[in-house]
Design a protein around this nucleic acid. Structure first.
Lengths: 124, 124
DNA sequence: CAGAATCCGTTTAGATACTG
DNA sequence: CAGTATCTAAACGGATTCTG
């Protein structure tokens, strides 16, 4: 048995495969969450998202940038120094995502039960 | 130029690639919409979803069934007669999805503008 | 009618190694 | 530090053909 499940798309402990509502690619929602309290650097994002490879994180960030959720800024200096931060649009989309997570939280038992009770439709 | 865009995940005229919030696979949200007014048969679903092949529609339905959103019922009779209908859970999830669509609707201009203004991050 | 079988191209994610 | 390059495997979506 386990602790109460954190039915939160943004929580990496959550088996989010049960959350049917998705945002972007596999890591996009987690990236938004990591950025919600202020700008972060590439390597700072890799700490909480410790399973993501740099290639995949880069692709996710580029996609979020293209779609207007994240702003990438190269700060001047001798060494490479890049910051990512949420745009207004990025902050805004956190609301419907939180609503979706609330729905999943409210229906967690139903979702679990559906999986457990399910017997695959036979193909005779 | 076109008519006002129906920024609705459930509307097949909507270029939903701009909607960052997804539900299940490519057809799942459309299937839910087709079922929201009552049970439908496999062939009835293929009419509004006229681009989906039977294999893909079957896979989408099986997945919705496994996750508890859709109930499949084989009705007795001489000929195969199968009905799909939304469960309570299926009806319930329409609400956060509608909320997500409303967000997209409200931010349609921002989403379009982000794409247009975007210049790919150079890889030097 | 309600699918299943097969083949195929694309997309996605991860592992590993390397660089300005 | 902030990525890129290469490879592999799985998942996804579609076209076509066939069947109980």
């Amino acid at each position: 048995m386990r602790e109460p499940l954190p039915a939160d798309l943004f929580d990496e402990l959550c088996p989010s495969s049960l959350n049917p509502i998705r945002f972007g690619d596999k890591w996009a929602a987690l990236v938004l969450r990591c950025l919600q309290d202020g700008p972060r650097r590439f390597s700072e994002l890799r700490v909480p998202l410790h399973r993501v490879t740099p290639k995949v994180l880069t692709r996710s960030l580029r996609s979020l940038e293209r779609d207007g959720f994240v702003q990438r800024t190269v700060l001047p200096g001798p060494k490479p120094h890049v910051e990512y931060e949420l745009t207004q649009l990025g902050h805004s989309v956190l609301h419907p995502l939180a609503a979706a997570c609330a729905w999943t939280s409210d229906h967690w038992d139903d979702l679990l039960e559906a999986r457990e009770r399910h017997t695959p439709t036979p193909t005779p």
